[in-house]
């Protein structure tokens, strides 16, 4: 598979994020599922509107990044904006990154059943 062409012009990325470099106060995991809670409004930044259309059904941060052809870090910032505007909700992974939680036998059994049913 070849990667689609990207326009990673730093100026463009700077414009998109208003020069911010971090999604302050929000932690979006790669697999946090984003759901839009309203329709795009006229005059909204086009990336914000695109995300709202994309996330009518739950969509992972990483899928949004792939569809927008933007680095994940930039998408996290755009999502933080949308969350602050109250127009999306975020369903974060239920397991904390702590090892102990990831080795939860009930979770693992659930994954195994799902895989065997493939």
């Amino acid at each position: 598979m070849s990667r689609p062409g990207r326009d990673d012009d730093p100026d463009r990325l700077y414009t998109l994020t208003g020069g911010r470099s971090r999604a302050d106060g929000h932690e979006f995991d790669l697999v946090t599922l984003v759901v839009s809670e309203s329709e795009p409004r006229p005059g909204m930044q086009s990336e914000h509107a695109a995300i709202l259309r994309m996330c009518r059904l739950p969509t992972a941060v990483v899928e949004i990044a792939a569809d927008l052809r933007l680095p994940v870090g930039i998408v996290r910032i755009l999502l933080a904006d949308l969350l602050d505007m109250g127009v999306i909700t975020a369903r974060h992974p239920r397991t904390a990154p702590a090892r102990a939680q990831l080795l939860d036998p009930i979770l693992l059994e659930q994954v195994l059943v799902g895989l065997r049913n493939l």
Binding site: L30, V31, L33, L57, P58, A60, D67, R91, P93, T95
Partner: peptide, 16 residues
């Protein structure tokens, strides 16, 4: 997300 199977409305836990 052209022709991509979307996730179910009830999806709420992503694993990696």
């Amino acid at each position: 997300p052209a022709a991509r199977t979307p996730l179910s409305r009830t999806a709420d836990n992503g694993l990696k």
